[in-house]
Amino acid sequence: MELVNPGIGLIFWMIIAFGTVFFILKKFAWPSIVQALKEREQHIEEALRAADIAYEEMKKLKIDNELLLKEAKEERDIIMSEARKIREKILDDARVKANEEADRIVESARVRIQSERMAAITDIKNQIAEISIDVAEKIIRQKLQEPKEHQAYIDKVIESKPF
């Protein structure tokens, strides 16, 4: 019976104590706790969403980057092949030009040689003519003397004439 016989004083003080606790906590504790929890949850959710967006953007950027890299590679390949072509062309051109130059040089040398030769031949001709005239003159001068000596003399003259 003692157990289920509530004391009026205990009821009175319990109402006051619980009421006070409820009032103080309701006024000073719960609002800031509940509010802070709510704010934190929102904050976390926003952060998660932002992270998602950032991740998506990063993925997009990565794809863009890869595309860019691929394009750059292709461009590089094109440039490289073009460069190769140009190089070959330049080399070819150079080779052709060199050949032409060489031909030209050879030709001009040949022309020069020809002309030199012609000059030399002319010179020789002239000298031969001169020598011939000289020889002939000397032969003519000696003719009237001895034929044998004549012959020897001709030989001597011819020998003394350097060609």
């Binding site: 606790v21 103080i24 906590l25 000073f28 719960w30 800031s32 706790i33 802070a36 929890l37």
Partner: peptide, 17 residues
């Protein structure tokens, strides 16, 4: 109870987010 939860409430004000 009052001390504990006022303390906790202060903690929430401090550690916000």
């Amino acid at each position: 109870l009052i001390l504990v939860f006022l303390h906790v409430a202060n903690a929430y004000k401090r550690t916000k987010k």
